[in-house]
Simulated scan of single mutants.
Amino acid sequence: MSGFDVGARLKQLRKLRDLSQRELAKRAGVTNSTISLIEQNNVSPSVSSLKKILDAMPVSISEFFAGEETSPQEKFFYRAEELTEIGDGNLSWRLVAARHPSRGMSIIHEHYPPGADTGEEMLEHEGEEGGVVIAGSIELTVNGDTQCLHAGDAYYFDSRLPHRFRNPGDGDCVIVSANTPPGFSEGGASTHHRR
């Protein structure tokens, strides 16, 4: 965490949410002094204890380390390097406008290397989702129906139906997708894709 002012960032996010140190400590299940010491940079929190505190706000780890964004309400454009990675290190899902204050949907740039799979256990969650395959191919199963989609092909379905994504090919698959309601609003913690 060197080079990043953890204390100042925590204090900034806490104040943005109108939380006192006491209230944040209570929500996170830690002592008031813990919050105070972290904010003064007198103690460096472990990732797990930092996550516990951030979950109480709630703020994702990626949002925390992404730093301050000026006037998020007025931001319309996002460069490739500004997308927030919420994947698991193998599958890559890069979320557009992760910190937008009133985001009503998730738009994700998805990358599936050969053999990547969302898992044998079918996914089911509230909402709808759709996407367009930009490169490669993806095997998509929705409610027992399996299709192999290629570049230019698209999908759209009720997310409550059991579904699974798998890249059976020997090349990378790239998809641009959207889902609503925004299952990635907390960053990383979502039922859209299982790690």
Rank of each mutant, 00 (worst) to 15 (best):
I134R: 02
T191K: 10
R195K: 13
R79Y: 09
S62D: 04
R160D: 11
S49H: 07
P181Q: 09
E69N: 03
D170W: 02
I53G: 11
F165K: 05
A189C: 06
I107S: 04
V6G: 14
R14M: 01
V6Y: 05
G130D: 15
T146Y: 01
V142H: 01
E81M: 08
N167F: 12
Q40Y: 06
T146L: 06
I38K: 01
P113D: 08
N41R: 03
W93C: 08
A154H: 05
E110P: 10
L149H: 00
S36W: 03
A8I: 04
I86R: 00
G104I: 15
G183T: 11
P113Q: 11
A135Q: 12
Y78Q: 15
L83R: 14
R160C: 13
T141S: 10
C148V: 14
F165Y: 08
P181H: 11
G89P: 07
F65Y: 06
Y156N: 00
A135D: 10
E120Y: 12
T34F: 14
K75H: 04
T31M: 12
D18T: 10
F165R: 04
R22H: 09
D145R: 08
K52E: 14
I134G: 02
N167T: 11
S106K: 10
L140K: 00
G89L: 13
I38H: 00
P181E: 08
M105Y: 14
K75R: 08
V96F: 15
K75D: 05
M105G: 09
A8L: 09
H163C: 08
R194E: 14
G187R: 01
S92K: 14
T70E: 14
E81H: 05
T34R: 14
K26R: 15
D172C: 08
L10S: 03
I175R: 06
E120L: 15
E23A: 00
G187A: 06
E81L: 09
S71T: 12
K75C: 02
H111S: 09
G171S: 12
L13H: 02
D117F: 13
S177C: 07
G89M: 05
W93G: 08
S177E: 04
G29V: 03
S71Q: 12
M105F: 15
I175V: 14
E74G: 01
L123V: 13
L50S: 07
K15M: 06
Y112G: 13
A80Y: 08
V132M: 01
R160I: 09
R164A: 08
R164W: 09
D117E: 13
G3C: 07
D117W: 11
R14S: 00
N167M: 13
R14G: 00
R94P: 06
V132T: 03
M122W: 14
S20N: 00
C173M: 06
I175Y: 05
A116M: 05
E120Q: 12
T146A: 12
V96K: 08
L19F: 07
A56V: 02
V133W: 03
S20R: 03
G187W: 03
H193T: 13
E82K: 01
Q147N: 03
G187N: 05
A154R: 03
W93N: 06
R99T: 11
G119L: 15
V59A: 12
G7E: 04
S20M: 03
S137I: 10
T70H: 15
